[in-house]
Amino acid sequence: MTEFQSRMETAARIAEAVYGLTVEWQPIPGEVEVVQATLAGREELPIYLTHSGEQIICICYLWHDKEVLAERRVALLEALLDLNIPMPLSSFARVEGWFVVYGALSRQSRAEELAQELATLSENAVDALDAFAEYLK
């Protein structure tokens, strides 16, 4: 188990104890270390964690560009910008056609912070999906 993975394991246990969330995680094979975390009850919105240099990036993929209603596209983008700051601790972004919510943490973040990030990001993802479903096909 890598150092990052063992931190992830601790974070999952903290998430259970502190936030009452059952978190399962698994490494995703590839050149870069990526971990997929699934929260019980929200299996459709897994969170992917990766790290680079000084940060840990936690990403939740919400919807693809293809799913956006063409006529509501501009309104969606404006709404995303408007909501970006009010949304606690997470931000909206787009990665290769995917609209995502993500949070960035310091590479030195402890498992406690990682657990909090998972809980917050997951809640933000569900809320965002709920709020923006009207712009999607």
Binding site: I28, P29, G30, E31, V32, Q36, T50, S52, G53
Partner: peptide, 21 residues
């Protein structure tokens, strides 16, 4: 610049891995 390049690379690769899996 290196942090930005690495982050972009990392997220790109992660997205590739995710799409693949």
């Amino acid at each position: 610049e290196l942090v930005m390049a690495r982050t972009t690379e990392s997220v790109h690769r992660a997205t590739q891995s995710i799409s693949h899996s």
